[in-house]
């Protein structure tokens, strides 16, 4: 487990249920045996690939060409890890292996990005405008969301995915506004990833042509690196925080398309310089758009809801274009087929 924030695998919950790893996984033992199995072994101390308690047998090939099977019990077990290479099961003749270099050239986040691409494809096919809302804890994300939903729900279908380490309080607050919401609890995790969101989408089943808010875990660091398949990240900075946050946490403000400066109704009471905050944010992200809002007074909500509606209209138009292109292609193919049948 990470000692900085405690994030680890195996603790994610969606609406209180354990997340299904789905396709199982495969792994490689120290003796070179590779195999796959259902995700049956429990996470050992949160480390996904430490096969403590794994009770699966496997077959492997020795350097002399003989192949045999045995169960994992033959391997030496010490506290916490199995060393397949140390016991009789993994004994290999010295000198039979040769070190070599293997070129990889793959992005560390490639697996997450694959899931994000799948989410993005789904959003495109359904004409869903998905936003990833990121901020520190306490910036007023959920209150802002509730007010945005109140303002828009008569005009557009809306759905919400809520991310928090624990509790379903936020999803309950959203459901009280009358729109569907699903809570993801990341356990010790410090961010949502694209796989969690993909699973949440399957359960939530947001409507075609809808607006989807994904409220990330309150954290200005980790969510910056993880693409969820969203159209945009929206960073929320409230005037009760420091105006230097965009410099202290530059990755997040660089990854965002829009910054909402929230709680502007409190500006007379705090020493927050909006212009400085915007200048700091644009130092790390020159193209960053900014809207000043107050989820309490409703100030700036006209601009913010217009931004949302424009984004959704563009996403819907893109879907229509794709559908129109597919229809044209079908018509062309049918014409070809009719020609061939003649």
């Amino acid at each position: 487990m990470c000692t900085t924030c405690g994030c680890a695998a195996g603790e994610t919950r969606i609406e209180g249920e354990a997340v299904d790893a789905g396709d199982g996984h495969w792994h490689v033992h120290a003796d070179g045996t590779a195999h796959s199995h259902a995700p049956a072994h429990p996470p050992a101390g949160g480390l996904r690939y430490a096969p403590r308690g794994a009770a699966h047998g496997h077959a492997h090939r020795h350097a002399d060409g003989s192949v045999h099977t045995h169960d994992a019990a033959g391997a030496a077990a010490d506290a916490g890890a199995l060393h397949y290479g140390h016991g009789p099961a993994g004994a290999h003749a010295p000198g039979m292996t040769q070190a070599r270099m293997v070129q990889i050239e793959r992005d560390i986040l490639s697996k997450n990005d694959g899931y994000a691409d799948a989410n993005r494809k789904r959003f495109a096919e359904q004409g869903i405008f998905a936003l990833n809302l990121v901020s520190s804890p306490g910036s007023g994300k959920t209150t802002l969301l509730c007010r945005s939903i109140e303002a828009l729900r008569e005009r557009l279908p809306i759905a919400v995915v809520e991310g928090d380490q624990q509790t379903s309080y936020d999803a309950e607050r959203i459901r009280a506004t009358g729109v569907p919401a699903l809570q993801i609890n990341t356990g010790k995790g410090c961010h949502l990833d694209a796989h969690m969101v993909g699973q949440a989408l399957r359960k939530l089943a947001p409507a075609d042509d809808s607006l989807l808010f994904i409220e990330n875990v309150g954290n200005l660091v980790c969510p910056a690196a993880f693409d969820l398949g969203e159209a945009h990240k929206v960073a929320i900075l409230s005037v009760t925080e420091g105006e230097d946050k965009p410099l202290k946490y530059p990755d997040m403000f660089r990854a965002a398309t829009l910054m909402l400066i929230n709680k502007v109704d409190l500006l007379p009471y705090v020493a927050f310089d909006v212009e400085r905050a915007v200048a700091h944010a644009r130092r790390v992200n020159p193209a960053l758009q900014v809207i000043r809002v107050s989820a309490t007074s409703g100030e700036g909500f006209g601009e913010w809801t217009a931004w949302l509606e424009n984004g959704l209209a563009a996403q819907r138009a893109q879907k229509q274009e794709t559908v129109a292109a597919l229809r044209r292609r079908i018509a062309e193919l049918e014409a070809l087929l009719a020609g061939a049948a003649r």
Binding site: M1, C5, R48, I104, I108, D193, F226
Partner: peptide
């Protein structure tokens, strides 16, 4: 931080 998830990503690639 998120380095734990990234380290798992590296291990998966390996």
């Amino acid at each position: 931080m998120h380095e734990m998830a990234l380290a798992e990503g590296v291990l998966q690639i390996v």
